[in-house]
Amino acid sequence: MTAKQISVFLENKPGQLVELAKTLNQNNIDMRALSLADTKDFGIVRLIVDDPYKTACVLKEAGYISSITPVLAIEIPDEPGSLMQVLSLLGENGLNLEYTYAFTARKKDCAYMILRMADNDKAVEVLNKNGVRLICQSDLSALFED
């Protein structure tokens, strides 16, 4: 029940991100979401793409250091308060969120959240029990098609 996020190591200096974007572009990789965590020296780019395995191969070929990280993806109503509800659930159950980012797709009235949890399994259990719609990688990939 997880999505396959691509995490890429980049040095924190000018031109690094554009190089990565070029590589993805040359290989026709479609990005749905991007989030960048940075420190003084380096950054970690997190990507949701149409084909994570192809992307991993492409990046390896191009000399990048990257990994496939299992994250949770949820679909929530695109309206005020819906994120708060999900976060409250996690908090009330003592689940630690390491990072999160959001995106929308063509599907009307829906928003998507990527959640990186300290304990994915437990989070899945809690979210499922409370009727939060979790989507898996094939659902995510399908978002690229319509």
């Binding site: 996020q5 995490s7 190591f9 965590a37 420190t39 020296d41 380096f42 970690i44 997190r46 250091i65 990257s66 990994s67 990280t69 390491e98 990186r116």
Partner: peptide
């Protein structure tokens, strides 16, 4: 130079290695 073995998706983990 960063290696695949040393890389982690977590900034704090990479920072801890540093």
């Amino acid at each position: 130079e960063m290696t695949p073995e040393m890389f982690s998706d977590s900034v704090s983990e990479v920072g801890a290695r540093e």
